[in-house]
């Protein structure tokens, strides 16, 4: 499992990659709100165009992004069908004699829900997972949630736990493979049999893995103590996050966009959701 890449980070040097991670978190939040505020056909057109623009700016192939939607196709299809069949409206499409009643409003809301879910996924993954490394994201969250320290939320500790978890994912995944090979060499069968049998076969893998993870934790704790770790107090940082001009421009853009989407709620073009 060497070279396993966790998350979906797609290395590139687009402007979206270069933005401060905090900017991207803020933008993602606004973008999510935008998708929920949006109620008109004009608004969804604008959202769709903006999502396509983001894909273009990020320089990530559209195919890679569409792949991330695939696992959610079922949910999208399910919500669409629910909307088509169960939305009541005024303009009925199917004849009155049919049991199944489909309204024009149902079709619109199915379309809007589909777009909403897809744009939600594409937008957040473009701002966060595709263009921001997990570690940068952790730093951003520690920084943005910093004020919560005043009410004794252990923000630094959570961020440190997150960092260590990210650091040890590749180490532990290598170890899992080693243990699996060791158990296979002793004749354990991991791939056949019923679900229950497969689950049972996992026990001899999970137990050594947990024991080793706990031992590693003890050693790491001693090593951290040796390097004078004593919590977040009085700590300086090598990499200090700094907002640059492009970050302010980006945040201004998302604000204007948000205001625009809000205004488009009232534009009576094609359809406005009730």
């Amino acid at each position: 499992m060497k070279g396993v890449s966790f998350g979906q980070y797609y290395p590139s040097d687009s402007i979206l990659h270069k933005l401060d991670p905090r900017t991207k978190v803020i933008m993602a939040v606004f973008y999510i709100v935008c998708t929920f505020v949006c109620k008109s056909a004009a608004g969804f057109l604008a959202l769709t165009l903006s999502a396509l623009a983001l894909v273009f700016i990020s320089r990530i192939p559209l195919r890679t992004i569409l792949r991330s939607i695939r696992p959610l196709l079922f949910i999208i299809a399910f919500t669409s069908l629910m909307n088509i069949f169960f939305t009541q409206g005024e303009r009925r499409l199917t004849p009155e004699s049919w049991v199944i009643s489909i309204y024009v409003e149902g079709l619109w809301s199915a379309l809007f829900m589909t777009l909403r879910i897809m744009i939600l996924i594409v937008g957040t993954s473009l701002f966060l997972t595709y263009t921001t490394t997990p570690i940068a994201l952790t730093d951003a969250l520690e920084n943005l949630l910093g004020p919560l320290k005043k009410i004794r939320v252990p923000v630094h500790d959570f961020a440190m736990m997150m960092t260590i978890a990210l650091r040890f994912i590749p180490t532990l995944s290598d170890e899992t493979e080693k243990i699996m090979n060791a158990q296979k060499a002793r004749g354990s069968d991991l791939s056949s049999g019923s679900l229950l049998k497969k689950a049972k076969a996992l026990v001899p893998i999970l137990i050594p893995l947990f024991v080793s993870a706990i031992n590693r934790a003890f050693e790491l704790a001693a090593a951290m103590e040796c390097r004078c770790y004593h919590g977040g107090e009085g700590r300086t940082r090598l990499k200090v996050l700094r907002y640059r001009t492009r970050d302010w421009v980006a945040m201004l853009t998302i604000l204007v966009f948000f205001a625009g989407i809000f205004a488009l709620r009232y534009v009576p073009w094609l359809y406005i959701m009730g």
Binding site: I164, R167, A223, Y229, H230, G234, R237, K239
Partner: peptide, 20 residues
């Protein structure tokens, strides 16, 4: 079991960061 950060230079910085 003694490297904390995910980038070499950030790990080297860990000690002095703790010292402020």
């Amino acid at each position: 079991n003694q490297l904390v950060a995910t980038i070499v230079e950030e790990d080297v910085a860990f000690g002095p960061e703790n010292l402020g």
